[in-house]
C-alpha cells in the first residue's frame, strides 16, 4: 500500500475526461448521485433479503441457501449500479476524496463488506440445502455482521458530503 502514491493517482483520476465532464456540468453530479441512491435502496433490499432470513425473520420456510441463490443476481446487479454511478462520482472529485476521512472509511468498509459476503457468508451458508442444517446462532451473527458492515459503508458514504 505504502508503495503507491495515492495522491498522484487520485490527481490523475480527476483529470480523466469523464471526471471533467461531470465537474463542469451542473446536472450530471446530482443525476448520477440519484442513481447511486436508487442503487443504495436496491442493494439494501438484496442484502436484507438474506440477512433478515438469517435472523429468522422472513422466508422462514425457505432454506438459507435458496434465499441466497435467489438474491445473488439482485445483489450483483445492485453492486454493479453502485460501481457504475460511484466511480464517475469519484472521478469528478477524486482529490477531495483523498483528503476526506469518510471516503477512506467507506472504502475500507466496502472492501470488508464485499469480502465478508463473498468469502465468509456465501461459502459458509450457501451450501445449506435444508432447513435443518441451519445453525441459528451462526446465522444470527453473520446476518448482524453483514448488516453492520453495509450500514457502515452507507453511513460513511453519506458523510463524505458533510466533511
Amino acid at each position: 500500500m505504502s508503495g503507491i502514491d495515492w495522491l498522484l493517482l487520485f490527481e490523475q483520476a480527476e483529470t480523466t475526461g469523464l471526471g471533467r465532464i461531470i465537474r463542469e456540468s451542473m446536472w450530471l453530479f446530482p443525476v448520477i448521485q440519484s442513481g447511486h441512491l436508487i442503487g443504495l435502496a436496491s442493494l439494501g433490499g438484496s442484502v436484507l433479503a438474506v440477512d433478515l432470513r438469517l435472523l429468522g425473520l422472513i422466508f422462514r420456510d425457505q432454506p438459507v441457501a435458496a434465499v441466497m441463490r435467489t438474491a445473488r443476481p439482485w445483489f450483483f446487479a445492485s453492486l454493479g449500479l453502485m460501481f457504475a454511478t460511484g466511480i464517475p462520482l469519484f472521478l469528478s472529485e477524486a482529490v477531495k476524496c483523498y483528503f476526506n476521512t469518510s471516503f477512506w472509511v467507506k472504502m475500507i468498509a466496502l472492501v470488508t463488506a464485499i469480502a465478508f459476503v463473498l468469502a465468509v457468508r456465501n461459502p459458509l451458508l450457501g451450501t445449506q440445502h435444508t432447513l435443518a442444517a441451519s445453525r441459528p446462532a451462526v446465522n444470527l451473527l453473520i446476518g448482524i455482521a453483514s448488516m453492520g458492515l453495509w450500514l457502515t459503508v452507507a453511513a460513511a458514504g453519506r458523510w463524505i458530503g458533510f466533511s
Partner: peptide, 16 residues
C-alpha cells in the same frame, strides 16, 4: 443521514 440510510430498509424491503 438516518433519512438516507433508511432507504435501504424502507425501499429495500418494499423492493423485495
Amino acid at each position: 443521514t438516518t433519512h438516507v440510510l433508511t432507504l435501504m430498509l424502507f425501499l429495500g424491503t418494499l423492493a423485495i
